[in-house]
């Protein structure tokens, strides 16, 4: 088990290194000159060359990647020029690990930008995760237990509706009616949960619900399907034949089998969401990583783009490893091979 976890983690590290190389290629593959964008609209060729030099874009690709990695694990200075460092140290921007680069457009270090925004995205993602696990899974269980009868039809129907509306539409409707018109909750804003838990919930409920909606809809259907599959298993017949109560048959024998695969799907979904939900954050004007991603894509802020892709990939890879290890732990049949 331990060996499996270690081996799986090592594989993930290799995967991350490959990912960092691929994302780094964004710089090269990009149609525009990153230095030109970093410099601004009215730059002379000399100024561009200057920016190029100060950001290290004049170096060969492998050297740039080397600096990029060095920044990630150690530290980096902009511009990386010993002469300037000696003469005018105040013009140097020091970037400590993990350094994702410097955003000229925002005139800030990428790591600083992300550090400000990541907590917003993570908090909303986890809030949404709780909502969809509770409502989606519960509804799925209820639908399966009432298969073919009205609660089932109602829940599956609602799920289908939830599934068919686009996120921005749901977000706007909730914003417009629940917050502005009926004023059931205050206008959504991000408040740190550590600072004011109640305020966090009141301010974050609408974005979290918007984000969760499509997952709730999906999880109703997935849970229902796994429940029905488990309910058809021979071992439930055995459990009933033992004389167990129906409650025990459902809660001990059926749920265990039905929820195990859902755990893994949920882990992966959460991992994918942690690095920001672009639409939801934009609709509710939350300063999360998702909104930052949209802005930087529009502005061609390549260092920020690269950083966000890398972080998103990291979350997904780490979630994968955790889910694999978790699954091996909860399903005794899985051998760590």
């Amino acid at each position: 088990m331990f060996a499996f976890a270690v081996r799986r983690s090592l594989a993930a590290v290799v995967m991350l290194i490959v990912m960092s190389m691929v994302t780094f290629l964004l710089f090269i593959a990009s149609a525009t000159d990153p230095a030109r964008i970093a410099c601004g609209k009215n730059c002379t060729p000399a100024q561009i060359a200057d920016v190029k030099h100060s950001l290290g874009y004049d170096k060969p690709i492998y050297a740039q990647y080397g600096l990029f990695v060095e920044g990630l694990v150690h530290e980096r200075n902009f511009p990386d020029d010993p002469a300037i460092e000696k003469n005018a140290p105040q013009t140097i921007v020091h970037c400590s690990a993990p350094c994702f680069g410097y955003s000229h457009i925002n005139t800030a270090l990428v790591s600083t930008l992300i550090a400000q925004r990541l907590p917003v995205s993570v908090a909303i993602a986890i809030f949404a995760f709780v909502l969809w696990m509770v409502f989606g899974v519960l509804s799925g269980i209820v639908a399966a237990l009432f298969r073919g009868r009205w609660p089932d039809k109602l829940l599956v129907g609602l799920a289908l509706i939830g599934y068919s509306f686009p996120t921005f539409f749901i977000g706007l409707v909730l914003y417009q009616y629940v917050a502005l018109k009926w004023q059931i909750v205050p206008v959504p804003e991000y408040i740190s949960i550590f600072h004011d838990p109640i305020g966090f919930i009141r301010g974050g409920i609408l974005p979290a619900l918007t984000l969760a909606m499509i997952y709730i809809a999906g999880y109703v259907r997935i849970t229902r399907a796994y429940m029905l599959e488990a309910m058809g298993e021979d071992y439930l017949r055995t459990a009933r034949a033992k004389g167990l109560t129906e409650r025990k048959v459902i809660f001990k024998h059926t749920l265990r089998a039905a929820l195990t695969p859902i755990t893994t799907i949920a882990g992966l979904d959460l991992g994918a969401l942690l690095a920001g939900a672009a639409i939801t954050e934009t609709v509710f004007n939350f300063n999360g990583v998702g909104k930052l991603a949209v802005q930087s894509a529009v502005n061609g802020d390549l260092p920020v783009n690269v950083a966000i892709v890398l972080i998103a990939a990291t979350f997904i890879i780490v979630a994968n490893v955790l889910v694999d290890v978790l699954y091996a732990y909860i399903d005794p049949r899985v051998r760590y091979a």
């Binding site: 060996a3 270690v6 081996r7 051998r335 760590y336 091979a337």
Partner: peptide, 8 residues
């Protein structure tokens, strides 16, 4: 078959 240890 492969062994189960850290190095397989």
């Amino acid at each position: 078959l492969k062994t189960q240890g850290l190095i397989r």
